[in-house]
């Protein structure tokens, strides 16, 4: 019973963090149907930034979050300008983007290997464990969940309380109708791309704690997890992304407790079940399928 309680609480805490990981991808995939296979590698680069900060300046690794955001915005703008307009001209943007971003992910991995080597890199723990109902949880786990909540809230405010967010949602629902009604697609797309990348990089330091360290090959698995979460939680729905993350976190921690050998299969099995049973995700209205 104690174990079940632990699995539930840590599942929810992990899940909120996973929701945070999904946010940036949700924007890119939702708005432009860009299959960003480099998402996990961007998160990992955010983690490496935190690592550099702690080893060279000996500051709290969480400072990497505010520092990474402007960097990611600039990088996002450059990457957008260099690739997306060309990609959008391709007859099958979705497929082309998948292959393109696979290439980008290889490049990011190669650069990480050159700069940081192949060894696992970790960050110093944030503090003493936190006691919840008499059981101990890592400070970094609690902090990650606590930071994920405002991040998800910001995502919500952006989509529902700003003009640009309104336009973004219009494009997500139907790009042609949105264009016809005067939405400036390019502005929406550029900002979605930049903001998406910023969210990814900001999640990096937390990912370094949650994954027990990072190395250049960590990104691949993280990307798949992020896709699972946004597809479960439906595109363009911040609450859905959070819920998708929590569902994933719970599934993962419960299998750890009761079916340990199968933990690796959780994201894939969940993704398959969701796309087959309800391709629009658990919290979505509609999505384009076959």
């Amino acid at each position: 019973m104690r174990l079940f309680e632990y699995a539930l609480i840590s599942g929810v805490l992990y899940g909120l963090f996973y929701g945070f990981i999904g946010v940036g991808l949700n924007l890119l995939f939702g708005v432009m149907r860009l299959v960003n296979l480099a998402h996990g590698d961007l998160v990992v680069w955010g983690g490496y930034l935190a690592y550099s900060l702690t080893t060279s300046a000996h500051v709290n690794p969480l400072w990497a979050i505010p520092i990474s955001i402007p960097l990611a915005l600039v990088a996002g703008f450059l990457l957008y300008v260099l690739t997306v307009p060309r990609l959008r001209r391709s007859p099958d943007t979705e497929t082309s983007s998948l292959i393109l971003f696979f290439g980008v992910s290889q490049v990011l991995e190669a650069l990480a290997t050159m700069k940081y080597g192949t060894n696992q890199v970790t960050l110093p723990e944030l503090g003493n464990p936190v006691t919840i109902f008499g059981q101990q949880y890592a400070a970094s786990l609690v902090a990650s969940a606590a930071l994920a909540v405002p991040a998800l809230a910001l995502f919500y405010l952006y989509l529902y309380r700003t003009r640009l967010g309104l336009a973004t949602r219009a494009v997500m629902a139907n790009e042609e109708e949105a264009t016809a009604s005067g939405v400036r697609i390019r502005l929406v797309a550029t900002s979605a791309f930049m903001i998406g990348l910023a969210f990814a990089a900001a999640a990096g330091p937390l990912a370094t704690f949650m994954l027990g360290g990072i190395n250049p090959t960590t990104g691949g698995g993280l990307t798949i997890t992020a896709f699972t979460i946004i597809i479960i939680g439906s595109l363009g729905n911040p609450a859905g992304t959070a819920a998708g993350g929590v569902l994933y976190g719970l599934a993962s921690s419960l299998t750890q407790a009761y079916a340990t050998a199968w933990t690796g299969m959780v994201p894939y099995a969940l993704l398959l079940v969701v796309v087959l049973v309800r391709p629009s995700g658990l919290f979505g209205r509609r999505v384009r399928v076959a």
Partner: peptide
């Protein structure tokens, strides 16, 4: 118990 070699999250396992 066995876990996949790719396992990185040990929180609930340690508790178990």
């Amino acid at each position: 118990q066995g876990v996949p070699t790719t396992q990185s999250d040990y929180s609930t396992i340690v508790q178990a």
